[in-house]
Design a binder for these strands. Structure first.
Lengths: 396, 396
DNA sequence: CATGTTTGTTAGTACACCGTACGAACAAAC
DNA sequence: GTTTGTTCGTACGGTGTACTAACAAACATG
């Protein structure tokens, strides 16, 4: 299960941002970039010949052969036989990412009651699933539970692992240290919970830890067909968001990008929030509040149904009010919702997009799309896997 | 006045975004990057020896000598004599950007009544200023006025020009085509006003055209000491914004990033806007509306003064309400205001920051800064110059 | 004056990519 | 069955970039 040759880590998550301002550039960096380019092209297209890759990338067939040879030594690319269709000329030997040769562990710490984990293949398909009840564990106990879950999943993998990705609630810096996750009691010491370092030491594998909503946004971009300028809003016990700007995750000046749960919405009051303010987005949208309001409305009678719909529409309006300035400022192309389908997908989403449309400039933002994610419950785990793909292979 | 050797265009504005996903990378790109790195380091530090540059960049003295020789042939770097201080070892020959060897033309089309232009040196200092009354020109007439202004400024330059930068109102794509600027009657044909191409053809110089608020944001980042995650709000006849994210300008999915003037603010109505909606940010903040409201409040008496202050505070609150979700979502470190000082700097700015603080999470965004720009009226022209520096030299 | 330090250059090496050329393997046409 | 043209993948030589090693020049310091 040695993955020693696969620690290249080229673009995206590993480096944080695309180019640090004062960093020299060497020819070998170009090589790494082109390596990733080959992998990325092959990853997207499925199966191509060397000549196809040359045409797609703009590199020459010679260079492609060289890169492919290097990647085949590392077992990242395999030959899959000759092309099926009959064409004039020498038949092409087809190549593909070694999709069965590596697996990824993805872990989702965002639920308030359970830690979820899975073994995934390189396409982000869940192969094996493990859930661990949280049982109120915080601080070091929570850390121990994460390590144990990771080790179980590592043992469950049937082929070498590319790495471990973790989506954690709270504020996570670029080194994978959780700076603040109150629900999990992190950091238990003062400085920050170095989850990435802890897991790397425990497993000996490459590890990437990032915010859960950021991971979800990346999943939607990698596997959900989302556009390159997108916001993913994750509704659960809290409300958070992840942003993809120009195809790249956005982290923010203090790694707190997407923390919109405690932004006040509207100018007409609202409910009191645990944070001390009044009318935070979470007081309108968080699932416990919504569930309670819906339960109070009753069920069965037409009046109750109407009231339930009004509650959901109101929540959607608040979401739209909060998002309108963000959509306007960032010129987003798409907003994706993640969370309980029965709450979000319906009057809430409809009211949200109507409100967004009525509060932004149609000339600029008319073709804005708002939709539910199609990735369901697995979104954070799959995003964690996408983080590993991005960091280890430069594939996004 | 030949500048034929200086068309390299490395990072930042010329490419739009840092790395396009499917673009090969060659060793010569690394060379270009390191060229820019040398210029950038020298630009920021003022004057350094080759050995200093080697230490600062991480490249070897040999490579630095090679790069410096190339840049000296292009007259972008000059030797400024030996180091003053007495130190052991061979005395160092100091280098600097050829600050007097090139100039830049910056043009500001954002004012509703005049086109402003200037010849600037490489540090963004205005050397010569030209203003042209707009006289209601629109469409082709406006274009002709811009071309004439550019030609006047080109003639006024005393040394070779690095290029021409233009900050235009409206939506401008990455090729410098104005897609929509209603006040100037652009585009006059259907497709878009290709201002960058027109000016390049007329002058034979490199030209960069971008949105005025984006240019202003870049000016603040390059010359105003702004942080790397910043929003600049430009208040005038309209309200627009420019965003710097991770040190890079943000353009948005339809090149409309920063267009927040027609985002509805609050949930309690407001004045009718020309766009058809009610309560747009412009109805609270645009200078004609503010001036009218202040004039109606009167002057001199204590009551009038109090009312004037209340009007300004109210505008500031609205700005804070609109910006809170953006600050939260992007985790901005700084918000900078540009526009009439007598309106913005005072109760308005104070109310804005107070509102922002009360509507966001102090844990995340507590040390947010809101301030006036120190660049005054010249901000767009200087931003246009910064665009040229970024596109031609990779300096930002 | 001898010694050590710093600077900038020369010489040689490693690496990455390109252009050209070539053999291999096939389809189509005769 | 042969010829022709096409496509594929590889071999070779060349160019560009940056590195290490070595060195002469110029200076401060003891």
């Amino acid at each position: 299960m040695s993955t020693a040759e696969v620690h290249r880590g080229s673009s995206g998550f590993a480096n944080g941002r695309a180019l640090r301002p004062s960093a020299k550039s060497l020819p070998e960096h170009a090589r790494g970039h082109n390596r990733s380019l080959v992998l990325q092209t092959l990853y997207g297209a499925g199966t191509l010949s060397r000549a196809d890759l040359a045409r797609a990338t703009g590199l020459t067939r010679v260079t492609i052969s060289d890169l492919v040879a290097e990647l085949m030594v590392e077992h990242l690319i395999v030959e899959t036989g000759q092309r099926d269709e009959a064409r004039p000329g020498k038949p092409a030997t087809m190549l593909d990412i070694n999709r069965g040769g590596y697996q990824i562990v993805g872990i989702d710490l965002s639920d308030y009651a359970v830690f979820r984990g899975a073994v995934l293949d390189l396409d982000g398909v869940v192969l094996e699933r493990v859930e661990v009840p949280l049982d109120g564990a915080t601080g070091p106990q929570a850390t121990a539970k994460v390590v144990a879950l990771a080790e179980r999943l590592v043992a469950a993998a049937s082929v070498p692992l590319l790495g471990i990705g973790v989506g954690s609630p709270g504020v996570v810096d670029l080194s994978g240290t959780v700076l603040s996750a109150p629900n999990l009691g992190w950091p238990s010491n003062g400085a920050g919970e170095p989850l990435q370092a802890t897991l790397a030491a425990a497993t000996g594998l490459p590890v990437i830890v990032a915010n859960d909503a950021n991971a979800a946004a990346l999943a939607e971009h990698s596997f959900g067909g989302a556009l390159s300028d997108m916001m993913l809003v994750k509704v659960g016990h809290g409300v958070g968001a992840g942003l993809i700007i120009g195809g790249t995750p956005l982290f923010g000046s203090r790694f707190a990008a997407g923390e919109i749960g405690h932004v006040v919405v509207g100018t007409d009051g609202g409910a009191a929030c645990a944070c001390g303010k009044v009318g935070c987005l979470e007081t309108w949208l968080a699932t416990p509040r919504l569930d309670a309001a819906l339960a109070a409305a009753g069920d069965g009678t037409p009046e109750a149904d109407a009231e339930r719909e009004a509650i959901l529409r109101c929540a959607g309006e608040r979401l739209g009010i909060a998002l309108a300035p963000v959509v306007g400022a960032l010129d987003l192309a798409e907003v994706v919702l993640s969370g309980p389908v029965e709450l979000l997908d319906g009057p809430l989403a409809e009211a949200a997009i109507e409100t967004l449309r009525s509060r932004t400039m149609p000339t600029f933002h008319g073709n804005l799309v708002l939709r539910m994610t199609a990735l369901g419950q697995d979104i954070v785990m799959r995003g964690a896997a996408a983080m590993v793909l991005s960091a280890q292979l430069g594939v996004s």
